[in-house]
Structure formats: structure tokens, C-alpha cells
């Protein structure tokens, strides 16, 4: 469990990190290290250079501006889990954080690191999709904003270009009803299935619109648009929710493994989607 040789550089500013990254195409950004380091120890990843952005000031914050919640990429899972501001304004995020790994992991791992890694069973991608998050990427050429819908491209692949660093996660406040539910893998703690539900409800228990993010089920996190469409404009009763939830795996290639075959995972996805919607709806 010893990684291959690599160089290490600690960036003191974002510019410094971007310069290093521009000079070293195969370098990897080291955030909390909780996905990257294990992969390196197994020698599945052998980057020649790690650029540590952990000491850069101003990458770890949770604040509110212009009707948006802004979270620095280096904000730890635990900071999100324990944020009063988020509990009040976007409870899906603290709830999602509480499902990640264990306390030690949550104290080191970061939301930006997890999103940029795009593990198919990580928790944050589901939440980012459900919340319609905007991901701010920065490079030497400047900044751009990527919609969560466009961010997760494939297994461990994001829309970040070479030379880009994820700097911030932005979420529009919308007063919605939210929930994150998950069946963890008994060994890894990653999601067998994780469902983030974000519902806009009107006063008469009707779902105006829904965004449902799914992780653990396919090669990448995805939005369950079949569920969302079935929900939109419908009364949130048990039968309607159960019927809508069955669309969770429409047009999706489902993962199968030792713990959960594709059949079983498809079933679990529907069950957990139903539970996520029910829980969210109960939080109006």
C-alpha cells in the first residue's frame, strides 16, 4: 500500500496552483485526498505530481450572496454537515454530508474534491444534480460556470478541462422540500443507491416541479428525468409517488456487483427514490 513515486507541490495561491497545473499536464490536484490517495496507494493512479491546494486561503467557506449559496471547493464534508446556514437554507447538503464515510473522512474530505473526482457512487453528485448546482471552474484563461447537469460526463470523468480547477459550488435558493436517502455498501460505505430529492411544492400538496439526483446506480450520477416528469404537476400521494419512482432507471444501464445485482439495484433505486420523495414531501 505504498504509492509510486510522485512529486509534491504546495500551492499558496490559486494562481500558483493554476500555473503548476498548466506546466504539468498529468498532475493531479490534491484536495482532501480521500479518493486520490487510496487510488495511488493501490497504484491504480500514478500521477507524477500532486498539487496540494489545501493551504490556499479562501477556498473553504459557506456563505450567501445575491440569492445564492456559495460553497468553497475545499469546504469539508463536516463543515457542510454542521453548517447552521445550510441547515436553514439548503438542508439537503448537510443531510447528504452526514451520509459520507465516517467522522474522520468527513473531517478531511471536501465537496470540491469529491465532485471533481466524480466517483459513480459518491454522494455529492446526486445532491449537486438535484439542487441544480453551478460549478465554478477556474483556469489561467479565466472562470466559467458549469451546470451540474453538464458536469458529470462519465465514470470518473467530468466536464473540467485540463488546466481547470473547481473553485466554488453555487446553489440558487428556492425554498424547496429536500431529502437525501441512501443504502450504503456494507464495506466501502459508498452508495449502493443514493437519492437526492428536491421538490417545489404548492400549497395544495401538489408538486410543481421536481429534481431527482441518483448515485451508485450507473456509471455516473444522473437525473431521474422520468421520475421528475411523472411528478411534475401531480398530487403527492403514496400511489403517485410510488408510480413515479418506478421510472428511476428508465433508459439507464444499471451497475451490478457482488452486493447488489442490476435487478436488485434497479428495485432499490425505485424504493429509495420513493422514500426520498416521501421524506422530502413530509418536510414542506
Amino acid at each position: 500500500m505504498i504509492p509510486a513515486q510522485f512529486d509534491y507541490a504546495r500551492a499558496n495561491t490559486l494562481d500558483e496552483a493554476l500555473n503548476l497545473l498548466a506546466q504539468n499536464e498529468d498532475a493531479k490536484i490534491l484536495a482532501g485526498g480521500h479518493s486520490l490517495i487510496p487510488a495511488m496507494k493501490l497504484r491504480l493512479m500514478q500521477p507524477p505530481l500532486l498539487i496540494d491546494i489545501g493551504r490556499i486561503k479562501d477556498l473553504s467557506y459557506i456563505d450567501e450572496a445575491d440569492g445564492q449559496i456559495r460553497i468553497g471547493a475545499m469546504t469539508t464534508h463536516y463543515q457542510i454537515e454542521s453548517s447552521d446556514l445550510l441547515k436553514r437554507m439548503c438542508p439537503l447538503l448537510p443531510e447528504c454530508a452526514s451520509h459520507i464515510g465516517d467522522m474522520q473522512v468527513r473531517n478531511k474530505g471536501t465537496i470540491g474534491g469529491s465532485l471533481a473526482h466524480s466517483d459513480p457512487a459518491a454522494d455529492w453528485p446526486a445532491a449537486a444534480l438535484a439542487l441544480n448546482a453551478e460549478l465554478v471552474a477556474v483556469s489561467k484563461d479565466g472562470e466559467r460556470t458549469i451546470k451540474a447537469d453538464d458536469f458529470f460526463v462519465d465514470l470518473l470523468t467530468t466536464a473540467l478541462n485540463p488546466g481547470e480547477i473547481l473553485r466554488e459550488i453555487r446553489i440558487n435558493k428556492n425554498g424547496s422540500s429536500q431529502a437525501y436517502v441512501k443504502m450504503p455498501h456494507p464495506a466501502s460505505g459508498f452508495a449502493i443507491v443514493g437519492v437526492a430529492a428536491n421538490l417545489i411544492m404548492n400549497g395544495s400538496n401538489e408538486c410543481t416541479s421536481a429534481r431527482i439526483g441518483i448515485t451508485g446506480v450507473a456509471a455516473k450520477a444522473y437525473r431521474a428525468t422520468g421520475v421528475e416528469n411523472a411528478m411534475a404537476g401531480s398530487q403527492l400521494n403514496e400511489a403517485a409517488i410510488a408510480t413515479a419512482a418506478k421510472h428511476v432507471s428508465d433508459n439507464t444501464d444499471i451497475n451490478g456487483d457482488l452486493f447488489a445485482s442490476a435487478d436488485y439495484r434497479r428495485h432499490l433505486a425505485a424504493v429509495y427514490t420513493r422514500r426520498a420523495i416521501q421524506t422530502a414531501a413530509s418536510r414542506v
Binding site: P38, L42, H185, P186, A187, S188, L258, F259
Partner: peptide, 24 residues
């Protein structure tokens, strides 16, 4: 009773080779 199993596949490959797979 509920979690653990050392699994080798048909080729004798160790599937549960670390604690990410072996459910302690």
C-alpha cells in the same frame, strides 16, 4: 451471519481483496 465473505471468482481471482470490498 450478515456481511463477511472472502470471494474468489471462477478464475480464482480474489474479489474481496481489501476493506472496500470485504465487509467487516
Amino acid at each position: 451471519a450478515l456481511y463477511e465473505e472472502v470471494v474468489y471468482d471462477e478464475q480464482g481471482q480474489l474479489v474481496t481483496g481489501e476493506l472496500m470490498d470485504y465487509a467487516l
